[in-house]
């Protein structure tokens, strides 16, 4: 009971400081934190796949970028009325769900280790096709120049947008938490841990993987949509493998299979990135963020497979075991 009380107090303190934050800090920091809130949901959506279902989807950026582009295209073509906003949200979700169903249809055919590889290769191909399509449909997307657009009036206030982003993160965290802890979420974790056993228990593994992909796609698309409202700009980089790898890095730095890890990972990676880019005046090498990005990537996979939150949970777990073992020992001694 006391532990619960502490936890709630910590949540309250964190929430209040985040609420006060935009009023006490500079514009740059506020924009960065707002961006972290939104990208963290992208990271969490990847954790549903990588951390909870054991799938590597290399076309995940198509869902995120799809959400951003659909918002941008609808706002440019149909204006920024409430009806256009609703239509844009509906289209972004429909696109994500449909693409996830088509992608999953072919990506989840093989099982076992070969299945993970096949899935990664097939999703990469689908993702690149979406990027290619966005580059070709210049009439709608402005091709490689990128699409600049205006957003509905209610999202134009920058401080207001910060709060929307925070609200978005909180709502999506609660929803995805619910999904993970639901019976369906449990089946997904069973598939991750032992696909064959899950199949022998009578679960339609492919159907569950599809469900996980659609859920993750909807979350990623929503995140992309919010990103559109925040940045008012879309370019094809958002659809590239690089962007998928961003989400992957967020989850593996933070810790896969922990959900919250994605939030920690996103914050860490984004803060490091903005810090390094500030150093670019000192030496040109700091402008090559991607080389650092790749290096962090390889080092984390090799030496820190659990990620930050994962490592924290493990240390906490062994401390708790050590304590109980210690107390048992003294009891036995008495």
């Amino acid at each position: 009971m006391t532990a619960k009380w502490w936890l709630w107090a910590a949540y309250a303190v964190a929430l209040i400081s985040l609420l006060v934050f935009p009023h006490v800090t500079g514009v740059m920091m506020r924009e960065l934190i707002g961006r972290i809130f939104i990208l963290a949901v992208f990271g969490m959506s990847y954790d549903i796949l990588r951390g909870y279902t054991g799938i590597i989807n290399l076309g995940h950026a198509a869902f995120f970028g799809g959400g951003t582009y659909i918002a941008g295209i609808v706002f440019t073509r149909l204006g920024t009325s409430a009806a256009a906003l609703l239509l844009a949200v509906a289209l972004a979700w429909a696109f994500a769900a449909l693409l996830a169903l088509i992608m999953g249809q072919f990506a989840f055919r093989n099982t076992g280790a070969g299945g993970v590889l096949a899935c990664a290769m097939i999703t990469l191909a689908f993702g690149e096709m979406v990027r290619h399509t966005a580059e070709t449909l210049r009439e709608f997307t402005q091709g490689a120049d990128g699409l600049t657009f205006v957003v509905p009036v209610i999202f134009r206030d920058r401080i207001g947008m910060y709060y929307y982003a925070l609200l978005f993160l909180v709502v999506m965290t609660v929803l995805l938490r619910q999904f993970i802890n639901s019976p369906t979420g449990r089946v997904l974790q069973a598939i991750r841990d032992n696909e064959q056993r899950a199949r022998f228990l009578g679960y339609d593994v492919r159907k569950y993987k599809l469900l996980a992909l659609v859920t993750a796609a909807l979350a990623a698309s929503s995140s992309g949509f919010m990103f559109a409202l925040l940045t008012r700009f879309a370019n094809t980089d958002l659809l590239s493998v690089q962007n998928t790898l961003n989400a992957l890095l967020f989850t593996i730095v933070g810790g896969t299979g922990t959900l919250y890890g994605a939030i920690v990972g996103t914050a860490f990676v984004q803060l490091v990135q903005s810090y390094l880019l500030e150093l670019r005046g000192i030496h040109e090498i700091f402008a090559r963020w991607q080389i650092f990005f790749g290096a962090i990537y390889v080092l984390v996979v090799l030496y820190m497979p659990l990620g930050m939150v994962g490592a924290f949970l493990r240390i906490k777990g062994s401390l708790a075991r050590w304590r109980t073992a210690g107390s048992n020992h003294t009891e036995a001694g008495e």
Partner: peptide, 24 residues
């Protein structure tokens, strides 16, 4: 070599190499 037999880590590591050496 350090990740033989671990499919997911192989994919992730080689992706990391892709980023580094493409940017190089």
């Amino acid at each position: 070599k350090p990740v033989y037999g671990k499919v997911t880590s192989q994919i992730l590591i080689t992706l990391g190499l892709m980023i580094i050496f493409t940017d190089m």
